[in-house]
Design a protein around this nucleic acid. Structure first.
Lengths: 352, 352
DNA sequence: CTGTTAGCGCCTTCAC
DNA sequence: GTGAAGGCGCTAACAG
């Protein structure tokens, strides 16, 4: 609080201006005895300025603790060194880890992050994108709800570069970093089948979600490869949250659906499924086996440790950030599609 | 991609300007046949403008899909309708849930969030605060590393309102929303003592952390109330992450430290402890009981379900956001200290 | 009720 | 090498 106190001795006005207007280029210019844009050049390390004045300017700037106003700079330069990140649900550790990867590369390269949450609501997604564009972010990283293309259309219309996180569109060319969901699901289901399971409940995500679609293909493929039929009644749609898994399993149980294993859209969903199963007195994996997807940090800690499919989550985020920054800093116009697919990895623990 | 395609028919320049400069007040003004600040007034719903022109302006704005440039607005108004959030670790579900609470009230009141991660590194904390101030955020919500006061001093010097999340300083007056850590720890340890445990390993956080300090007091208090001595060798310091709990327990076991229960600084730490214990073949709670703190969503899912102390996490975040916004929108200068303490709640599950 | 004027703080172009 | 204008897009004063 020392900086707040107003001393009677000395120049009171001097003392107070810590609270008032921040120091600007003009203040430095006056103090250093040069014009205010010489200061600008010195601070930005531009060529046309003598070593001597540059030194003096930097010294004064440091003494006055100058901080550039990024709004002004952004307004002038048309770039803000910030990127917008739109995810579905921060409470889901999957996204938290993806954001960590994003944060790592962005911070390292001097970019700030503006975060927004959609809760899988397309209206919130569009609102978030609008808000980010209004804030003049240099680019957007987005896990789209996929209910519609409104937010993406808006981004291309405004010429804002973006990359998709973990999801992509078949009929809309865009950069995206995804996981090989079809293969991951195939691995998971093949594992379950190899353990002798024949009735595998599939708690999938919503059909407009590209991961859900591909994982369904993987589910079918694994069955086909084993020469086994698929019972369509075992394929359920859930929201991608814990409560989704919980209610889906509770319903399945109540409806006397018969199954010996459940494959979940995500670990997060699987956690809910575990809870419902446990509550119903099922032993895992003796009565029913459970598989998740993502390999979130907590997957190995739950009871029993969850078998799952690992996605390199921080790498996914980091990669998406890298290709986005490359596009931002390279040729602005180089739109085009780049689909980077990360390999999934089967992780067998004790729930299967 | 439709908006991207350039048609040969029609006015090509017209078609392309979707990619070029965004529409501004001037564009609307020209189109609507009024002056550009009449547009401003109409859009901001200012009193001095006729219903008729307002209607027309709004119509044109909507047709052109106008979005205000928030940099320009912020520069002019000296407020940006964004608040900065600085947390220690997004991978820790505790912070993820706190941020959810913050997000909820901020989004509802039209504020955006700029997020930064410190990883408990004071240098990163200071850098984050600098960056936020440069971006002219209207206020900051901060979980300080507490290693020093540099970032807080900077905020008061610049006159940026802020509130502290979950931590506070004894010798530095500031708004903060915290949990009653002393009481929470007392409840937890009393519970353990009542179960007959006499040698309770305490995996505390670092001593500069206010929660760690108070929880230590609670630990001692519970012992005192029971008329029991405290064995100082049972009090360990860990970083506040999963790996901290894991290595601390591993070391304790290797050093043949004798204990029948372990009380952890957080659920996150407890998860690590569980892992180490399990690896060493300990049965929980038969061989050693484990308690966490926070009651994170996953606490009830781990093996065995974790006894812990509940903090109202989203409420903590939401409350902090509310008092911050109140200060921002109310009298700017009303600094002062407000310490809001949320009550903890003992949650007994199967790990004790 | 509406238009004109003047910046917010910074960077860029163009003179000197 | 340095300084003097001009303007990014917007809002807030003051005229009319």
């Amino acid at each position: 609080m020392t900086g707040c106190r107003i001393y009677n001795s000395g120049n009171v006005t001097e003392r107070m201006d810590a609270l008032k207007k921040p120091v600007t280029l003009h203040d430095i210019a006056r103090e250093a005895g040069v014009s205010f844009n010489t200061v600008s050049r010195a601070l930005n390390d531009k060529p046309d300025v003598s070593e001597e004045t540059k030194r003096r300017v930097l010294e004064v700037a440091r003494r006055l603790d100058y901080r550039p106003n990024r709004l002004a700079r952004g307004l002038r330069q048309r770039r803000t060194a910030t990127i917008g990140v739109v995810v579905a649900d921060l409470a889901n550790p999957f996204f938290a880890e993806v954001v960590e990867g994003i944060d790592r590369v962005c911070t390292a390269r001097g970019y700030g992050l503006v975060l927004a949450n959609t809760e899988e609501d397309p209206a919130r997604e569009l609102a978030a994108v609008h808000s980010l564009v209004e804030r003049q972010v240099d680019g957007v990283l987005l896990a789209p709800t996929q209910r519609d293309l409104a937010s993406l259309h808006y981004l291309v219309k405004r010429g804002v570069p973006f990359s998709l996180l973990a999801r992509f569109f078949k009929d809309f060319a865009a950069q995206a970093v995804i996981n090989d969901d079809r293969e991951g699901a195939r691995l998971a289901v093949a594992h379950l089948l190899s353990r002798g399971h024949r009735r595998i409940l599939f708690l999938n995500g919503p059909p407009y979600n590209s991961s859900a679609l591909l994982r369904l293909e993987g589910y079918r493929l694994a069955h086909a490869e084993a020469g086994l039929p698929v019972d369509e009644t075992l394929i359920l749609t859930t929201n991608a949250r814990m409560d989704g898994g919980e209610t889906a399993v509770a319903n399945a149980l109540r409806n006397k659906l018969s199954f010996t294993a459940v494959f979940c859209f995500s670990d997060y969903v699987a956690f809910g499924a575990l809870r419902a199963l446990r509550r119903a007195g099922c032993r895992i994996p003796a009565d029913v086996a459970v598989m998740g997807y993502d390999d979130v940090a907590f997957a190995e800690l739950v009871n029993p440790p969850l078998s799952t499919v690992r996605i390199a989550k921080t790498r996914l985020g980091a990669t998406a950030a890298q290709i986005l920054l490359a596009r931002i800093e390279g040729a602005e116009t180089k739109g085009g599609e780049t689909l980077i697919t990360l390999p999934p990895e089967l992780v067998v623990r004790e729930s299967t």
